[in-house]
Amino acid sequence: MSCESSTPRVSDGVHRDRLRRMSSLPPVRYQLEYPYTRTTGPIVGAFLTALRDGKLLGIRCGSRVLCPPLEYDPASGETLAPDFVEVGPGGTILSWTWIAEPSRKHPFAKPFAFALIRPDGADTAICHAVAASGPEALHTGGRVRTQYRAERRGAITDLYFAPEAEAESQYIPPGKGAVEMTEHLISLEFSEPLSPHRERYARALLDGKFIGQRSPASGKVYLPSKGYDPIERVQMSERDDVVVADTGTVVAYTVITPVQYYGQKETEPYIRASVLLDGADQPLGQQDIRTIPLAEFRSGLRVRAVWKSRAERSVVDVDNRWGGTGAVIERWEPTGEPDVSFEKIREHNW
């Protein structure tokens, strides 16, 4: 992939060069994490309640018993009555696979098997984990038994299986109440290098400068740039970089009253504004203003960036997608110049 001229070309050689020149700022790391809470409805709820209580349930569907239970007949789509049947604890392996290097999300940290297991009394198979001494302990047609974790939450992870010969006898005291909700903490990590233009942008921020890119096709200055001019559909390169002033005009703002949610660090209201820097053709968004009182803040206000000391500047939060200025700006302060009229900034509303 080449971005060196306005006539795109693909060349493996160029691509490798770009990889070599790629960022020596650390890669952007981010996490997508949320503790999802799922209400189960009556069928899944009954199934998970039974797991908590050390039992495996199926549901009657015509002449068959389905495990795990479904809310509907898979053949017709008709809603099923909650006609549950206890199945297992024994079951038969219908297929299996030995996982030599478990992932962090698997039920076990040491090697184990996933298997399709038909519990005794059921006509369908459940896919679940089998803890076994080794792959030699497993074979299609082999017998397994349900096992339950010591700590159970009314979740599918309360359960696992073991080969009959290795299974433990367990006494599972029943819990109280019906499980109506189950939790799943989903946590994913991502890491990608800063793309070349974003690396230059981030480095400039560390130097106390704003770098935008001027489109060779339209002459418009994009800040922060995405590395291309989307209107003319032209890739941009280092030679399109331009320094943009650190003074500008507030063109839009709101006051954010933080909503509390998992991972939220904000607690107090603050102004979030967009600033059209002098020399840029589109506003720089998501500038948080915490030192100018709301009564003195307005669109049209002339402001300048006050930079943190070099040692305190951080671009850890600069990434390839969002705008943002990391943590390099201490605050924005009014310059004292007269306001810019609404008509002049009307079209820069972002």
Binding site: T97, I99, S103, K105, P107, F114, C127, H184
Partner: peptide, 27 residues
Amino acid sequence: REIFPLQTDPYVAAPLGLDPVSVAGLQ
């Protein structure tokens, strides 16, 4: 490997981290 289990049934499969490679192994 950690993302694709989220394609599976959110109640009985996704929390097991059931990934496409494991399912391909079963197949």
